[in-house]
Every structure is written in structure tokens, then in C-alpha cells.
Design a protein around this nucleic acid. Structure first.
Lengths: 207, 207, 207, 207
DNA sequence: AATGAATGAGCCTTCATTCAT
DNA sequence: CATGAATGAAGGCTCATTCAT
């Protein structure tokens, strides 16, 4: 109703004067801060962390968390979809290249991102729960892109003929778990190796 | 091996004096009942189930649960190690055969058991947390057996030369996650296929 | 409709300088709007409604509510006294008529207004709490007027000789409760009957 | 339902040995304590009191309150129905006398009890909310008894011919409010007078 | 040894109030 | 002066754990 952006009296709201742009950006900043903190804590401590803890670590009051994410699930969801969106973006870029091996590139990226960026890890681990039902659009987007790439790879004979999208997605989840299991302290190199082992399983049984 | 003197294989576990009274016996029975119930509930509902719920479903009072498992973590641990012990036993059997492909047989069994027996699933998912630190003996037992089999497989050229025990263990965890991700309703066949994909990645790159 | 276009009715209500700017006028309007909204919500939802809800429904920000009514109790008080003032006005009018039955007319009006105007209902129900201590002047005004009318009625023998002002006031409150108890959906006619029953109790025991 | 007195294995549960009866009566005692405390606090402070406060004043932990009354509403309901039951009992007794004026006796008793026993006051004030929908049986019981007495009074010409049960009930609620409005400190005598005023309104308009 | 009532810390959430813009 | 974000103190409720019976 009266919720329109202020658009107060005078000029453009995005650049009031030359230097400071602290408009209502403080809200945005807090939201971001909470999101990031939650990402980290979910990743390192599991979904069990209390919202109060998140608030404390983010340097805001519990109420602020609530304003932005009215429910714990909402926060968790926001974290997860945020992560997924990055992957979707990457998938889109790769799809544009037309490379038949793009599937592997994407999967590598996904696994690697999962290995390095703990947040993605947690996001997808959590995803087992209900991401597909809770944020169907984003999840479906990702699946669709992977499906495209898989089809292309199939056409080029770059993957085993028996290999479905669902399996690919499942294996990505598996890769996360495997990498995670290997230990948080695992070097990038070792993580890469594990990913490689899984990816190799997707290749056509040579001869 | 583990904690209590379980009064293992040999003699009769339940006959203190001639006419076996229900004295220690029902205690044992209760413990077993709680353990089994916990296994199921952990598997189907996650680690979030309350001890009261477990007690209720097991048909005992909350206090009884506590007598046997003084802490929730203790219960969870008992469930997990119980599962692991089965795998260790299987590993021992397989090791005795001397088959170079025994590694694959074991891994298949592990993954399959994870796929079918929800309890194992949860046990090992949970294992990501701290099983290796909490019950180092059993976990180490299993790892050692796998290491043996891996070595033998290496010697026979049945696996990629670059493949460490830790990676194998990680991949098992990954397989669980992948199978789980594919959905609880997934058919045994599909689960098997996913496991196959992962196992294939362990084979030597042909030629 | 909503927020901005103040530019009140016709002339200048406060006219500081010649050309009346939109300065005090919209503040007045906002205050009024909040007051009215609060009246309604208190009546329909009870005193439990949150200030944010009131603000939202009034089309203003929470801060605005606070500027006008620094405390929730202040708002509630404002609502209540506002209602009372109407009754006081009516009492004054009636007092001027000199009619010995004016007391009954006033009481009927009070009860009827309570029955129809949910806002008054809530105001006086709430009044049980602390209106007499919180806004003593207005409450005292009303009481004084009622006392006058009562005295006149006594003189004319129109009411039981034993009947004090406090009792009359209490019975009005009782009538509200009774009518309310009978149900919000109660017809005006039935409400009137209940009021009648109570008023009849005030008449002298006929012979 | 399962609310029968324990009636455990052996003998009478109320007097195990001569003196102390501390059986599992501690639960019963706690329940009672909470109920009584809630009654008092609801009456004096309103329904707004926090469960923690009630627990504290009852000398138990918050969890204990919850065990007995899983919800705040459940507690409030228990308090209210408890009060109503007393009135129902009294109504039954009076109905047995066959006195045509029994209606007045009962109403007097109800109003008086409301005046003295703050708990009843609060119970019936609260009753405006949803007692009739929340505990329909008890409320209906009371209404039925009142209806019986009213019918009898009608037959005897002891009340105005136009007077329905609903009105009677509404007026009782009104009487509570009136008495309460007159002030908590009001003497029994004055309370009685107010009740009398209302009751007199129910009598047939003489001639 | 089992029971189940009691405990109490902690969780998620709400909301009156304050404050930067 | 209005706005709406932030605050932070409760509130109701849960549950692992302890303790009297």
C-alpha cells in the first residue's frame, strides 16, 4: 500500500550527494551480514545453530534476523537458494560455450565450489531435505541446465550412455559428502582427486 | 574391542542360575529394544527425535533410556558402532577369501546395505560428525580392513594405482549421500546403478 | 488516499503564516487516523493488537504512532477518553432538558452506544482497568453528570431511593458485559431488551 | 477418560500408612498447586500473566506447568471449568429443592461467589472469550440447569414472562462485571446490593 | 532396576520502543 | 516530522537430564 520506495521530495534516491551512499543501505547491509553469517555457521556447525547465535555473531539483535527472515526455515532457504543461484549462473555461461565436455567442467566447478566454499557444501547437504520442494524454481533451473549439458555430452559420446540427470545430481551431492568426509582440512588437491574419481565413473567404459 | 564386555560368542548369555529369572535378562532386552527403536527413528526422522519419543516407542520410561545410554550422544554412538560392527565382520570374512576383487565386493555390500538398511544410512551419515573421533576403535578396525583389501587390490592391479584408503572411505560416504539424495523411494536397482557408477571410477583407466 | 497528499479541507486550521503549508495539518490527520484505527482494532481484536498492526492499517509507520502516542497505554487511553467525551457531551445536553427521566434516557443511550458502537464497548471494558485512575478528569466529568441526573431522578421519585451513582456506573459497565456476552451477533432488539431488564431494576419497586 | 483415580494395585490409595501420604501424590499436588496459583494470578493480574511467573509462584519449574497443562489455553481452560463445576453442583442441589424461587437463590449464589471468589470472577470474565466453545459440556450443563430453574420460575410466575435463558446468563456475566467495576475493595454488602438491583429487574413488572 | 515427574537452560518468535535516515 | 529498521527483553514451549518413588 504505502510501501512504495520513499522517493521523497527531490532528486534521485541513489546518489544523494557525491560520496556516502548510506541511504537505507543499512538494512541491505544487515541482511547481507546475517545471510553471510548464517552461511558460515550452518556450514561449520550444522543447521542446529541457534538464531540467537547467528544474530550475535552477525552483530545484530535477534529481532533483526527476524525482520529479514521471518522463520528459521526462511533463513536456511535463503542461504541455500543464494548458493544455488551461483551455480545456475555458471551453468548458463558454460551452456553458451557449446563445448561437449562442458558437463564435466560444470560438475568440476560444482564439486570444487563445494569443497572450498563451505557454504555451498552446507547448502546442498541441507538441500537433501526439501530444497527441491521448497525452492523448486531455482533447483529446477539448475537441473534443467545440467540436463541440457548432459544431453549434449551424450550426443558427443562423452559420457556413459546409461546416465540420467537424476544420477548426475545425486553424484554431485555424493561428491560433496565424500569431500566433506575426507575432512575439512583436506587440501584442494586431494578434494580434486576425489572429484576426479567420481567424474571418471561417468565416462564411457573405454573399450 | 569396544566398551562393555559384551559376553561374546561362546557360552549361554542368559542363564546365571538354573532357572533363568527375568533379572538381568529384561534389562538386556530393554537395552536392545531401545537401541533398535533408536536406530529406526534416527533413520526415518533424523537425529532430532527426542529421547522421550524413543522411550515411548520402545515402550519404556525415559529414565530407562538414560540408564543404558547416559547421554543422547551415547545412544547415537551405540547405534552407529553397532552398525559398523556388522561391516567389520563382513570385511573380515571377505579378507579371508583372498580374492583380489574382494574390495569391490565389500564396497558394494557397504553401499547396498546403506541403501537398504536405513539404519546404516543414518549411522554413517551421522558418522561424518565424529564417529572417527568418538569411536575410534571400531572405525579404525573398519578402515584397517579396507586398507588390507585395497592393498591386495592394488597388488592385483584391480584398482587405479592412485587411490588411498581415505579416498575409498570418503567415497563410501559419498555413495550413501548420493543414494539418499536420489530419494528414499528409489528402487534397489537404481541405487545399485549409482553405486556402480562410483565403483567404476575406482577401476584403472583402461589402458 | 493514503499517505502524502495532505492539503487539508478548505481554510487554514492553524494558519501560522498566510499561505498554509502542509505542516501541522497532516500531523493532525495522521493522529486522527491512528486513533480511529486503534479504536476499531481494539474493539474487534481486543487490546492485544500490536502497534505495528495498527500502524499498518492506519497507513503510517510505527514511528508515527509513537510520536503521537508515546506508549501503548497512552494510545489506549486516548481511545477511551475520546469515547467518554461523547457521553459527557450527551449528558450535558440531557441535563439541560430538566426532564426527570433524563437519567434513563442517558443510560439507554450509553448502553445502546455500547451495543452498537463496538469501540465504546471496548473502551469501557478496558475502562475497568484504570480509566478512573488514568484519566480521572473525564471519568469524573461523566460521573458528575450522572450524579446530577440521578439526583434529579431521585427528587422526582423516578428511581429507587437506594441507588447510588457508583452503582449506576457499575451497572452500565455490567450492561456492556451482559450485552457482549449475549454475543456480538445479537440483534439490536435483543440488546435493547437486556438493557431494559437492567434499567427496570432501577425503578422503584412499584408499590 | 483415563482420568479415574489411580486405584493402583493393592489397597486404598489415599492412606498408605498412618500419617504421610506422599505417594505419587506429588504430581497431584503440583498440579493442584499450579491450578490454584493460576487461578489467583489470572484473577488478580488478568490473563496476561506469564506461565513462568505462575510456575515461579507455584514453586515449580516451567516444564512442570507444561506437563500438566500443555498450553496456556489449556491452563486457562482448566481454571475456568474448575470454577464452573462448582456452580453446576450448586445448581443441581437447588434444582432438587423444587422451590420456585430457586432461580433467584442460584443467581444470588453465582453473583455472590463471583464477588467473593476472585477466581470465579476471572473464570467467567474469561468465559466471554470462548468457554462456551472450548468446554461446551460444562457450560451447557450449567445453562441447562439454569433453564430448568427458569422454566419452573416461569410456571410459578416468579419472573417476567419475557425472559430467556440466554438473557439470564448474560445478566450473570453483567453482574460480575458490574460488581467488579464497583471495585475489588467493595464490601460484600454493596456487592449484594448491586446483585439485588439486577435481580429485581427480572421480577414481573408488578401490575 | 524401572518409572515418570521435575528441572531448567535454551529455542524460536513477538513486539513495544528507540534511532538513524 | 515521517519512516521503517534495529533493538532487546520477554513469552510460550521443548527436551536432555536428574531424582524421588
Amino acid at each position: 500500500m504505502s510501501s512504495q520506495p520513499p522517493r521523497s521530495v527531490a532528486a534521485n534516491p541513489t546518489a544523494p550527494h557525491g560520496s556516502d551512499r548510506e541511504l537505507r543501505a543499512d538494512a541491505r547491509r544487515n541482511r547481507e551480514r546475517v545471510l553471510r553469517t548464517a552461511q558460515q555457521l550452518f556450514a561449520t556447525e550444522g543447521l542446529g545453530v541457534s538464531l540467537d547465535e547467528i544474530a550475535r555473531r552477525a552483530g545484530v539483535g535477534p529481532g533483526t534476523v527476524h525482520r529479514h527472515f521471518p522463520t528459521k526455515e526462511a533463513l536456511y532457504l535463503a542461504v541455500a537458494t543464494d548458493q544455488l543461484r551461483h551455480l545456475v549462473a555458471e551453468a548458463e555461461t558454460l551452456a553458451a560455450t557449446g563445448d561437449p565436455a562442458a558437463l564435466f567442467t560444470l560438475l568440476s566447478a560444482m564439486m570444487a565450489s563445494g569443497a572450498e566454499n563451505v557454504a555451498v557444501k552446507s547448502a546442498l547437504v541441507a538441500a537433501e531435505f526439501d530444497l527441491r520442494t521448497a525452492a523448486p524454481d531455482v533447483a529446477a533451473d539448475l537441473t534443467r541446465h545440467v540436463a541440457d549439458l548432459l544431453e549434449r555430452a551424450h550426443a558427443a559420446g562423452a559420457v556413459r550412455p546409461d546416465l540420467t540427470v537424476d544420477e548426475v545430481m545425486a553424484l554431485v551431492a555424493g561428491a560433496f559428502a565424500a569431500i566433506r568426509h575426507a575432512g575439512a582440512e583436506t587440501s584442494r588437491e586431494r578434494s580434486g582427486h576425489i572429484a576426479q574419481l567420481i567424474l571418471d565413473g561417468l565416462r564411457p567404459r573405454s573399450r
